[in-house]
């Protein structure tokens, strides 16, 4: 066991990670240790993007990340959407566009798109944003509405 306690800020609050085993995934820390179940588990192999969170502002697959490997980071999840301007904007745009069916992939899409907008800015071409969402799968195949949601999020005034 690693002796030291890992420190993480999750959606603005310090997380209690005392006694956390070394091999714990960020996804399990968020869902089971911290009870933040907005972040979804889909494939657990990095293929579907449902577990996407922001680690220091960068989109990250929580299923393929050891929590201790991001020790000291600032983690933002869909549960913290209200306190993040970009996440709020994308959430509103997806709601307006009706960009969801069953909704299971939606947190991953919203967080991944917010991450892209933070990285690239809203001047980024729509094609680049859509290309950057290739790692997010919607099993309902509701992609047409999702594409409209992405376009709306990009156009909406800050």
């Amino acid at each position: 066991m690693t002796e030291t306690v890992a420190h993480l800020t999750v959606d603005g609050a310090p997380a209690d990670l005392a006694g956390m085993p070394d091999d714990e995934r960020l996804l399990d820390t968020l869902r089971w240790r911290l009870g933040r179940k907005g972040t979804k588990e889909g494939c657990r192999t990095g293929d579907c993007g449902a577990c996407t969170v922001l680690v220091d502002g960068r989109s990250t697959l929580a299923c393929l990340t050891l929590t201790r490997e991001v020790d000291g980071s600032d983690v933002t999840t869909i549960d913290g959407a209200a306190r993040d301007a970009e996440l709020s904007r994308v959430t509103r745009a997806f709601a307006e566009a009706g960009a969801l069916q069953c909704g299971y992939c939606t947190p991953g899409f919203v967080v991944a798109l917010a991450g892209l907008l933070k990285e690239r800015g809203r001047a980024a071409p729509l094609e680049e944003l859509l290309d950057g969402l290739q790692g997010n799968l919607c099993r309902c195949t509701g992609y047409a509405a999702i594409v409209r949601g992405v376009a709306l999020a990009r156009e909406e005034a800050p």
């Binding site: 066991m1 690693t2 085993p21 070394d22 091999d23 995934r25 089971w32 240790r33 588990e41 490997e69």
Partner: peptide, 14 residues
């Protein structure tokens, strides 16, 4: 199904 296990599968050193 993936609740953290009590015993870690490995030790992580950095």
């Amino acid at each position: 199904p993936h609740a953290p296990r009590a015993v870690p599968g490995f030790e992580l050193v950095a």
